[in-house]
Design a protein around this nucleic acid. Structure first.
Length: 457
DNA sequence: GCCGTTTTCGGCCCGACTGTTTTCAGTCG
């Protein structure tokens, strides 16, 4: 997503990374990282914001605004250049490899003279890593796996990042199809639909069909925009409904509590009544954590207070297929779980998909009335089109969600729609393309009074 | 470096996991 916003964000992000590698103040680094997210997710064109107005952006103070101004004028930031020069070549690149952080990247450079990812792979295959303290067979295996993920995902990630900021769903769709065709030329993916090539293309879901977003965050957890700003931005998109789904307590770093969640819920009626959001129904939800055993954060009593629950895997990614599948199915069978969030939990070029029997999970979802998420974040593309098609054929419904952590992310829905279109989904397959009444029926799931009574007998 | 209905200083994201170690450092979400 090449744009003034993304360019500035990249510089701020790099400065944060450099501060961490060079042992700078962690809070300072975190502020740059946060500012990078805010700038990347700034809903307008950052180039149109006057210098003096930059500090009006939350998370951007005088110092960071100064660096943005410098970058706009000169195309570079001196402080970033200085830190770059202090670090041996390859360290920044290696520190981004999952399993390697700043400390290990520096160690690899200093003690082995490794100069980058390609060199690192050669060093591992040459058995040179074994000589380092703290590195063993498992580390070698993990690093090689990470390098494979980076290599494999890079073409798709780069293709998506190269799209213009306002790329339409058709344009994104074309990029996805092109990538699928180059990836598996010998094995055509069944049901994949190229742009405009299908006679059914008129029936495919469109971005304008989406009536709401069902997975979004605020600054109460790891989002960078306030609840009020997120709601206003959603209303400006013309949504009929909008779900706020901040993280739940078991993702410890988010520091969610019962009290915070209830306080957020109490804010919604007033926000919904504002002129800006009038006519848009606010749903109070959460993104639960599916624990290693398939349980979630809260008990039934507390969960019953939510309008909608997304449930996602955020830990223990390495479970074997059988355990992982049982874990997901347990979550789908929870009467309060409406959507399985980013089902493969992959991040392009960062984290491989978990090993789950999707057919079994799809059957559980179809049986229990649980939707699978098509997470629209271009950093995830999860589910990918080939799996969406298979899931649809097993009777699964979908939620195309942005998982927005900033205002700008709300505009990512079209990436999910593109994946859905490639897979051949129609409006009827997508629960957030349904009218609110029908959506509410779906969300009631197994937790209507009659059903709960019946299941307790 | 940013922020403010505990405000101009002093907080701010904490704990589990992992692999390697023999008591813990590093990484991650």
């Amino acid at each position: 997503m090449a744009s003034a916003n993304e360019d500035a964000a990249a510089v701020l992000r790099e400065y944060a990374e450099l501060l961490v590698i060079t042992g700078g103040d962690a809070f300072r680094a975190r502020n740059y990282e946060k500012a990078a997210k805010v700038v990347a997710g700034y809903p307008g064109d950052l180039a149109a914001v006057p210098d003096a107005a930059l500090t009006k952006i939350s998370g951007v103070g005088t110092s960071i605004a100064g660096k943005i101004v410098e970058f706009r004028r000169t195309g570079t930031v001196a402080a970033v250049d200085e830190l770059r020069a202090k670090i041996p070549p390859g360290v920044q690149e290696m520190a981004k490899v999952p399993g390697i952080g700043p400390k290990r990247a520096l160690q690899l450079s200093r003690e082995l003279g490794v100069t980058g990812i390609a060199d690192l792979e050669a060093a591992i295959r040459g058995g040179r890593l074994r000589a380092l303290s703290g590195f063993g067979a498992k580390s070698e295996e993990k690093i090689l796996g990470s390098i494979a993920v980076i290599t494999r995902d890079r073409p798709l990630r780069d293709a998506l990042r190269a799209l213009p900021p306002e790329a339409t769903e058709e344009r994104i769709q074309a990029a996805l199809v092109a990538w699928l065709e180059t990836t598996v030329p010998e094995k055509p993916v069944p049901g994949i639909t190229a742009t405009g090539a299908s006679a059914r293309s008129h029936a495919l879901v469109r971005t304008k069909d989406l009536r709401g977003d069902l997975h979004t965050h605020t600054s109460l957890t790891d989002g960078v925009a306030s609840l009020a700003d997120m709601v206003a931005a959603a209303a400006a998109r013309g949504y009929e409904y909008y779900a706020v789904t901040d993280h739940a307590p078991n993702l410890v770093m988010q520091q969610m509590t019962d009290e915070k969640m209830l306080a957020q819920r109490a804010e919604l009626p007033a926000l919904g009544a504002r002129e800006m959001a009038r006519g848009m129904t606010l749903l109070h939800g959460t993104e639960l954590n599916i624990a290693a055993d398939g349980s979630v954060d809260w008990d039934a009593d507390f969960l019953a207070g939510f309008d909608i629950c997304v449930a996602s895997v955020h830990s223990s990614f390495g479970q074997d297929r059988e355990v992982m599948t049982a874990r997901f199915i347990a979550a789908a069978e929870n009467p309060y779980v409406n959507i399985i969030g980013h089902p493969l939990t992959r991040k392009l070029g960062r984290r491989p998909p978990v090993d789950v029997d999707l057919d079994a999970l799809c059957d559980a979802c179809a049986r229990t009335g649980t939707a699978l998420e098509i997470n629209a974040s271009p950093e995830r593309m999860d589910l990918p089109p080939e799996h969406i098609r298979a899931a649809r054929d097993r009777g699964v419904k979908f939620a195309i969600d942005t998982d927005a952590h900033s205002l700008g992310h709300l505009n990512n829905a079209r990436y999910g729609v593109a994946a859905a279109r490639v897979a051949g989904l129609a409006r009827d397959d997508v629960i957030n393309a349904w009218p609110l009444d029908r959506l509410r029926e779906f969300l009631a799931k197994g937790r209507s009074p009659q059903r709960l009574l019946a299941s307790s007998i």
